[in-house]
């Protein structure tokens, strides 16, 4: 099983040179720490920045520079600033190559639910619905099962939907799976110490297993 850092490290291996990437809050934000320095990417912050840099030192803290999680940040050389309308224009028009975000549930059709739990205070969807509706490639970072053991990879989502048929790949604490265009979770890799049987038991939706499934390398 992978911990959060393991999931972030595995997702970092999906990153290619030259990509523009939007990272969601939580595990996706950690991915930035594990992108090899030989790969040049530009991180987009939907509140109006291309080129997110490292967190600032105490002396560098600037209240006019935050990321979408409202954390203080710095800018990389070559950064650009813009309005929220322009930010979502570049998202909607498919200029952002990769979106990495968390999810509460994903269906075997690639539907994602990640913004609202009935009975809990609804905080809002923020930019998630815009991102999932338009991104060219979406990777979801998530736990395979809830704390009480219920699968989060389902035939169809039970929670309110954030977007339909949009998720292409999931990296969970147990596995890497692709969502096939015709539906179904195609198992690609196992987490260290996890068997195909474990993954079958933990996946409520249709799991497709073909041939030997390699253990993932981080």
């Amino acid at each position: 099983m992978l911990d959060k850092i393991g999931i972030a490290k595995r997702i970092a291996r999906e990153v290619r040179d030259g990509m523009y990437i939007n990272l969601g809050i939580g595990i996706p934000t950690l991915v930035a720490n594990y992108i090899p320095s030989s790969i040049n990417v530009v991180l987009q912050s939907e509140n109006g920045l291309l080129g997110i840099g490292p967190f600032p030192t105490e002396a560098e803290v600037d209240p006019d520079l935050i990321n979408a999680g409202k954390q203080t940040i710095t800018m990389m050389p070559g950064s650009a600033l813009f309005s929220s309308a322009e930010s979502f224009a570049m998202i909607r028009s498919g200029k952002v190559d990769l979106t990495i975000l968390g999810a509460m549930e994903v269906s075997e059709q690639g539907d994602i639910a990640n913004w609202k739990v009935p009975g809990k205070m609804v905080k809002g969807m923020g930019g998630a619905m815009d991102l999932v509706a338009s991104a060219k490639h979406i990777i979801v970072a998530m736990q395979h099962c809830s704390k009480d053991g219920a699968s989060k990879l389902l035939p169809s989502c039970t929670l309110p939907i954030t977007g339909l048929r949009c998720v292409k790949r999931i990296v969970s604490d147990m596995a890497v799976v692709d969502i096939l265009p015709g539906g179904g979770f195609k198992l690609l890799e196992r987490a260290p110490g996890v068997t195909v049987d474990d993954i079958k038991k933990a996946t409520a939706g249709k799991l497709i297993v073909e041939g030997e499934i390699p253990e993932m390398t981080l």
């Binding site: 939907e46 309005s83 929220s84 309308a85 979502f88 998202i91 969807m125 930019g127 619905m129 815009d130």
Partner: peptide, 13 residues
């Protein structure tokens, strides 16, 4: 009233 962030930005625009 909760609105997706990009939709909110574009509705205002």
């Amino acid at each position: 009233e909760l609105i997706p962030q990009g939709t909110l930005a574009e509705r205002v625009r």
